[in-house]
Simulated assay, not measured.
Amino acid sequence: MTAFARTDNSKLGRWWWTVDRWTLAAIFLLIAIGFLLTMAASPSVAHRLKLESFYFVKRHAIYMIPVVFILISVSLLNLRDTRRLAMMVYGVGILMLLFTLFMGVDIKGARRWISILGFSLQPSEFVKPALAVLCAWMLAENQLNPVFPGKALALMLYGLTLCLLILQPDMGMAVLVSVVFFCQFFLAGLPLLWVALGVLTGAVGSISAYFFLPHVTQRVDRFLKAEGGDKYTDQYQITQSLDAFVNGGVFGQGPGEGTVKKHLPDAHADFIFAVAGEEFGLILCLIIVGLFAFIVLRNVGKVIQENDFFIVLAVSGLIIEFGLQAIINMSSTLSLIPTKGMTLPFISYGGSSMMALALTMGMVLALTRRRTRVGINL
């Protein structure tokens, strides 16, 4: 028995039979794994902060309510409303990014967060999916009408976002946004000369960040020198993270039996993948990697079959963001790259990140619904 009959013409009924239910199921499975790992990792963090044991678990459970609502409600949108939503989110997000420069919370020399009614919000998390959709819109319109300055407008939107991210500074997010933008531009027919200039600009920007941004210099130096340090340094957390994978082996120590989480300040957030490795072993880690790979590859397959250029560019940008964020988090946890404060999608604790990811994947589900291919409600 399915939730809706094929003859059900209600909005939810049409949504159920047109949405990609396999992608939706994989997302919900990631959310469930995230809640399980938050229950395993966060009590130790709460104890160190002198909070009630299940403080983060309760907050994570509360966050799941708007996350599911955003995911489902956004996936109900048609193409026109998806573009409108992206425009609105981008406009509000840019204003909030400007606000963070003056009134944001200063953490480790960067202003990326603002506090609203006791809730910490990172505006850049919401700007990045909105930017991907808007750039796809501009580039697609330029292809339909060469007179329309779509490429120039897309460059302006990207340039504005990049400047605000650098001013925070948030180099990791700047790199992620840049990779997505240039992938979309490449798909839109970016000349090879521009590709070379983009790569050169990225290299110069990375080198400049190392020499002129102290926190970037420290992270890279600690990564290259592999120094220990106290428990609040990145290298200490990486060392503990690698120990967690070694302790976990193939089958793990068992739920609640991990010890490394007691020493990891960010065990419930940036290093939650290490908790999965220690307590549930290689098996759960492979399941998590497999779920991310399934979501990315399934939607890449849908894009290959798509004829609407806007959908091709938008879904490509959004799914690259999603997959690359997962790769960055897991790679830093495994000491393959310097640490970056980037969450593991739908698994790490953090309401701001989870809601932004729900927006991202809600847009992907909306854009890949079968009705968008036959011209219904466009």
Rank of each mutant, 00 (worst) to 15 (best):
F69P: 09
I70M: 00
E52N: 14
L85I: 03
V74P: 01
V68N: 00
Y63Q: 05
V89Y: 08
F56P: 10
A61Y: 04
R84W: 10
L76N: 07
M96A: 13
K50Y: 10
F54Q: 11
P66W: 11
L95C: 01
P66K: 04
M88H: 13
F102N: 15
T82S: 02
L76V: 11
F69H: 05
A86M: 04
R84I: 14
F69Y: 06
V89K: 05
R80Q: 11
A86Q: 06
L77R: 08
M103R: 15
L79Y: 00
L85E: 02
M87V: 12
M88N: 10
G91I: 03
L49K: 05
H60G: 10
M96P: 05
Y63W: 12
F102R: 14
L51H: 11
N78A: 13
F69R: 09
K50A: 08
Y63T: 13
E52G: 14
T82M: 08
G91D: 11
H47M: 15
V68Y: 01
I62Y: 08
M103D: 15
L98T: 03
N78C: 02
S44Y: 15
M88A: 14
L79N: 00
I70R: 01
V67T: 01
L97G: 04
V45Q: 02
T100M: 14
L49G: 02
F69Q: 09
R80H: 09
I94Y: 05
L101M: 06
M96S: 12
H47W: 12
Y90G: 15
S53R: 15
D81Q: 05
R48F: 04
T82Y: 03
R48M: 14
Y90M: 11
L98E: 08
M64N: 02
M87R: 06
V67A: 04
A46Q: 01
L98C: 13
F102D: 15
R59F: 14
G91E: 02
K50T: 15
R80N: 13
R84N: 06
K58Q: 05
G91L: 07
V67C: 03
M64R: 02
R48N: 06
I65R: 01
K58T: 13
I72Q: 01
S75Y: 05
L49N: 07
I70L: 12
A61E: 00
N78T: 08
G93I: 10
L95N: 03
V68D: 04
L101W: 12
P66G: 10
A61M: 07
S75E: 02
F56I: 05
V45W: 01
E52W: 15
F56K: 05
I65K: 02
I70G: 02
